[in-house]
Structure formats: structure tokens, C-alpha cells
């Protein structure tokens, strides 16, 4: 009985999670549609936006399944940017765009890493000079 209850609780929490993710996607899809429509002086009906949100959610399922298969094919447990590039291979324009974005991301990461390294080095020298100062203070 208790187990059944906990199972039910688990089930509701999973479906709640599901609904919330769907709502999050619906919200972003709605915003994107409104922006696109504002540029062309048109308006999306609520059903159209709901349909687009549902399509996007199901497309996520397809994307995720593909990504997982690609990662597994490369004998990895983690989906990487390369897998996403492979996912976008079918359309040349999309593929180029994703490639470009990926390079931007890599560059950003590199810069951040360098900045962090620099900061760490600075901190090190600072603390060492402080130490020296402390040493100097001590007779």
C-alpha cells in the first residue's frame, strides 16, 4: 500500500515535471512567434502557437534520441558539440550556422579559461607579496 502510494507520488512528480517543461517551451515558442509576427505585422492564433510548442517538444524527442545514438556510436556517455553538429548535417545552411556558433563558444571558453588563469596567477602573486609583507612586518 505504502509502496503504491510512493509510486503514485513519483508518477505525479514525473508528470508534473513533464508539464512544467512543456510550459517552459510553450512560453519561449510564444515569445519567438510574437517577435517574428511583429516584424511582419501578422498575428499568431493561440492554437497555432500551441501546435508549434507541441511540435517543438516532440522534435526534442527526436533530437535527443539521435544525439544519444551519436554519442553511443562514438563510445561516449556524454553528448558533445560534435554530436550536435552531426545532428545539423542535413541542411547546409543550418550546418554552417551551428559550426559558426560552436566556434564562437569554443573561443569564449578559451578566453574565459585564460582570464581565470590570469586571475589565479594574480591572486597568487598578491598573496605571495602579502606574505612577504607579513614576513617583513615580523622582526
Amino acid at each position: 500500500m505504502e509502496r503504491e502510494n510512493s509510486n503514485k507520488k513519483l508518477l505525479t512528480s514525473v508528470s508534473c515535471h513533464f508539464q512544467r517543461l512543456k510550459a517552459a517551451i510553450h512560453y519561449t515558442v510564444g515569445r519567438l512567434c510574437q517577435q517574428a509576427a511583429a516584424d511582419h505585422e501578422r498575428e499568431f492564433s493561440r492554437q497555432a502557437i500551441a501546435a508549434l510548442a507541441e511540435i517543438t517538444f516532440r522534435q526534442c524527442d527526436i533530437f535527443a534520441t539521435d544525439l544519444e545514438a551519436f554519442a553511443r556510436h562514438a563510445k561516449r556517455q556524454t553528448v558533445t558539440a560534435d554530436d550536435v553538429k552531426l545532428l545539423a548535417r542535413r541542411s547546409a545552411a543550418l550546418s554552417n550556422y551551428i559550426q559558426q556558433k560552436s566556434e564562437e563558444l569554443a573561443q569564449n571558453n578559451q578566453e574565459q579559461k585564460e582570464r581565470r588563469k590570469k586571475n589565479a596567477a594574480k591572486r597568487k602573486t598578491k598573496s605571495s607579496t602579502e606574505n612577504e609583507a607579513d614576513m617583513a612586518m615580523e622582526p
Partner: peptide, 26 residues
């Protein structure tokens, strides 16, 4: 969260870059 929800294997994870690119793609 959506990606991990749809992964069949629980052990599969998505890297940070992959998630950013997927957001772009969506």
C-alpha cells in the same frame, strides 16, 4: 532537462557546449 528527460539511458549526459548549441538549434 528536456534532453535528459528524453535520453533512453539514464547515464547519458549532455555537455555544456552541446546544450548551448541545442538551444540555438531549437
Amino acid at each position: 532537462k528536456v534532453l535528459t528527460l528524453f535520453f533512453k539511458d539514464d547515464k547519458t549526459k549532455a555537455s555544456n557546449d552541446a546544450v548551448s548549441l541545442m538551444a540555438e538549434m531549437l
